[in-house]
Design a protein around this nucleic acid. Structure first.
Lengths: 187, 187
DNA sequence: TAACCCATGTAACCTGTTACATGATTAA
DNA sequence: TTAATCATGTAACAGGTTACATGGGTTA
């Protein structure tokens, strides 16, 4: 449902190809809405047939031909309308939490290992966010309107990863104590 | 993929009916893995045919008959195996962030309204978490093993909602300034 | 010579949502 | 009398994942 609008949002700053969108969705919008290239190409076709975007085929030598998609005035209108609607509470889907929930079934060391691996990815992502921040968002006042709003989404990413790591540290300490007590899940 | 294991995790403490599971998944596990009752009934049927759970039909007078599902030893084994596997980075899907990202297209007041409505739900959920906390998780040391792990998932919920509200406050201030400057998205 | 980038797709499949269906009991 | 609770399901559809396909150009 929202992929449609994620694409429109990505096209709002400039026209892009499906290929570029799948990379964009990887890099910035992808941090809060993910999709595969197959999904994107399909959706673009639909957006075109609805008249929310327009296409221009570009022949390239040395490279495969491409299709550049541009937001139409109808598309802008629909995007604005959608932004003003109340956002649904996002459906929670985090497998790690299921693992923690049933954590009493396994030895603490097993869970600790799973947690540490997740923490590695989270730290990496936080670092990535902080690098984007210092590379593009230091002089806040001199940013364009569009970039200032991007800054807000980046801030959310940073605050969330930091909260995650704080929780992981708490959890790690808890597991350490459980380990010392040596009561659970010896399998 | 993980719904299977969310159900096994919910059955790990005690046998339950599909109906009870869809309520449980609403109340506790539901905070990090959601599913409709239709999905749950279907999944239970599959888990039964795989031998990961066993069923017992119970006739009731005054109430519809029910089926009680119990975790089998095979089910426990599979759940333990899955817990030890590395957890995938959860796919991000948050429509509100798309709205913020393209927020320069609409007047700040529109976005503010969307943000405030989301904040209302978030505050409500945080309060709910805190109530569960003070009702069931005050005396940590006297909790059962299973409950101590549930405590960890509840802590994550609280830390996340607090981080969300902190971000919302930052964002609110930003929008207020933009509003005063009066530069954007007058439609 | 292997892998990756560019660029776009089809097809099968799995997962998740929404609508519909039944029917008795109990609380507002 | 209206709505909610208990209790289980079918069916259609929408959304998302994985596998497969093509093919030249560039980098290691």
């Amino acid at each position: 449902m929202s992929l449609k609008y994620a694409i429109l949002a990505a096209l709002s700053s400039q026209p892009r190809t499906g290929y570029e969108l799948s990379k964009k969705i990887h890099g910035s919008i992808g941090f809060f809405w993910s999709a595969t290239h197959q999904q994107i190409y399909k959706e673009l076709k639909e957006l075109d047939s609805e008249g929310w975007v327009s296409v221009r085929a570009v022949r390239q030598s040395e490279k495969p031909d491409k299709k550049i998609y541009r937001l139409s005035s109808r598309g802008v209108k629909e995007l604005k309308k959608w932004i003003a609607e109340e956002a649904h509470f996002p459906a929670a889907k985090d497998a790690l939490l299921i693992k923690i929930f049933a954590g009493h079934l396994v030895p603490p060391a097993v869970l600790m290992n799973v947690l540490e691996k997740a923490a590695t990815h989270r730290k990496k992502r936080l670092k990535q966010f902080q690098e984007i921040m210092s590379a593009h968002f230091t002089e806040l006042d001199s940013l364009s309107e569009a970039h200032q709003f991007q800054y807000l989404t980046l801030r959310r990413g940073i605050l969330f990863e930091q909260a995650w790591l704080r929780w992981a540290e708490e959890t790690r300490k808890f597991l350490q104590e459980t380990k010392r007590a040596g009561i659970v899940g010896e399998s």
